[in-house]
Design a protein around this nucleic acid. Structure first.
Lengths: 343, 343
DNA sequence: ATGCTCTGCTAAATCAGTTTAGCGACGTAG
DNA sequence: CTACGTCGCTAAACTGATTTAGCAGAGCAT
């Protein structure tokens, strides 16, 4: 890989100057007294030789590598990871940085290994990302340098900068959307889950979304008609919860699903029951999973702003001296699954 | 990030030996005549100081970084990328390597930039990945060192090692599955697409899948009842193609979909038409997208072995001196969408 | 006593940059 | 005429590892 690359010494020789001069010119150092002509000669030589500095040599001296570690529990392999990584990649490129990506798979030994591998390579900072928005314990090893938590917070005393989706506001928007269409006392919700709501190490989203929904409804004097519990946020549980909903005497006019996979299950149950969306029932949800746009009708949902979040993490890491959480808004994708309640 | 790390000189000093001795012991060099006691002392000192070598310094000398570049067109951000990266990450870790990931977004300038950034960092090799299985032009810059193409081939004369899913065999398995259930002359297919089938720079999968299906059916004297064309392999096109299928006089007993997203569209159309799967019609497909397991009934599909592929790419890069393509089998996920044709 | 080999170890060069300290020439002020 | 400052540039140290070349001492044969 890249043998015969020109070195700084080659550039200096061709320019008829010292390595020092060449280095200073190429780094655009202020306050050197090198002549305009010297600048010219160095640039010309570098250009001619196609010179590119050796990052290893440079970082040996400077302790900077223009490399960021992106460590995640398991995020890199999930659908959600894509956006996070893409956003981080874009922001990193804009700042001439590069991403070293690892996954811990939630395994302490792997995590230890991954972090050491990153630190051995002198990364300039670490982005520590979680798949599910949650609170997590930060491995002490990375606290020696800049760290940003992505889709996660840390126990309060650390006050690390972190990037989170604004789930509470999203909950409010979802509720507002239904209220605006005239839904009132027949709004159901599926996806309640005690574990997710009470244990911040499992999820921060559940509680925040619920809080946003409830407070917004409450402001108009509305309370939820039913709240369906689900052991996981998967289609099959959305399906089961929706069937339970339909067995009740009062049929809801709208269903809020805690995420799109539940909503997918709801669509299946409603389809089987011969009910149409949004004619008989409106459905609205969270995440903007790709299936949301594939469903018929398209599912209205508050999108997890993954790209924005990944981008923000890099920005905070490199530019900022931020402390505490930075919330990224979740835009509402309006599709066809919400309408006014039937007669 | 990681200041005050112990250096090799620190270890040597504590062990009462020279840097040379320490280096040799820690690298397990054969044929040195260092005493057993010297080994002990070095190991003890390294342990005590928590010594970890500085990769930048080492690679400056050795020109090895234990780092692999993973460059993709756009793969890193898609659902499919997850498995590819995960497999590569696992295999890399097993060999004590780390992955530098970039995305070119199909943009030549970005690609140029990404590759230079990787080479500047002295990566030991490059994995060049494509989102859609296809043939691509390899940027000359990376040909200086080891390269493996992932989910892609290169124009023949290069003979680069590459990793591809075995789509033809998958097509055969899909056809065999239907034949085994007794389907014969009412097998339909949706997802024909002239562009994908004829331009290897767009897709290699379409043509291979089709070839596997056709030759297997032909061996039993069967030909496809209908072949539905789709401008893209998206749910809406699967939906439209399936509706067209149902408008024909002879209703198919089974539908082969060129991928799972088309199959999702087919499910939607069949559901609307009041047809049940697999009672009225069997459906079978390719990819094993997550939705395949979410559908009701679960969709039988030939899985893209992303993790295996990512893993194989790293193995070929580091261990092998392979030439040409390496095919990874696509396992058939048998779910409930296939049954014997109705009476 | 001399020369030779073998053992156990080390000094110093090297990789490719950055950075510190300072040198010689020239101009100007006293 | 000398002292001093500025200009334009460079030698050499430094980063932390690997690797080459070779040294000192012990043991043995001649």
């Amino acid at each position: 890989m890249g043998r015969n690359r020109a070195t700084l010494a080659d550039v200096a020789r061709l320019a008829g100057l010292s390595k020092t001069a060449a280095s200073m010119v190429l780094n655009g150092r202020e306050g050197t007294r090198l002549s305009a002509e010297a600048h010219q000669r160095v640039f010309a030589a570098a250009e001619e030789l196609g010179y590119r500095p050796n990052v290893a040599a440079r970082s040996l001296r400077t302790r900077k590598t223009a490399t960021i570690a992106f460590v995640s529990d398991i995020v890199a392999t999930t659908r959600f990871a894509g956006g996070l990584i893409r956003g981080a990649l874009d922001a990193a490129r804009e700042r001439d940085h590069v991403l070293l990506i690892t996954e811990t798979q939630g395994d302490a030994a792997f995590e230890q290994y991954a972090i050491e591998a990153m630190l051995d390579r002198q990364v300039d900072g670490v982005i520590y990302a979680a798949m599910a928005t949650r609170r997590l314990a930060v491995p002490p090893a990375i606290l020696g340098g800049p760290v940003v938590l992505l889709n996660a917070t840390s126990p309060v005393q650390l006050q690390l900068p972190c990037v989170l989706p604004d789930d509470e506001r999203a909950g409010a928007m979802v509720a507002e959307t239904l209220l605006a269409q005239g839904h009132r006392d027949r709004i159901a919700l599926i996806g309640r889950n005690r574990q997710k709501e009470s244990d911040p190490e499992i999820s921060l989203a559940a509680e925040a979304r619920l809080r946003g929904i409830r407070s917004t409804l409450a402001a108009t004097g509305v309370t939820l008609l039913v709240e369906g519990f689900c052991p996981e946020w998967l289609p099959e549980h959305g399906y089961a919860a929706t069937r339970r909903l339909l067995d009740r005497p009062t049929r809801p006019s709208a269903i809020i699903c805690m995420n799109d996979r539940l909503a997918f299950g709801a669509y299946q149950a409603l389809g089987e029951a011969g009910l149409t969306i949004p004619g008989d029932l409106s459905v609205i949800s969270f995440d903007d999973d790709p299936i949301a746009s594939w469903l018929r009708p398209g599912l209205s949902t508050a999108a997890l702003p993954h790209e924005q979040m990944g981008r923000r993490a890099v920005e905070l890491l490199l530019d900022g001296d931020a402390v505490g959480p930075s919330f990224v808004p979740m835009p509402l994708r309006r599709r066809r699954s919400v309408a006014a309640p039937a007669g």
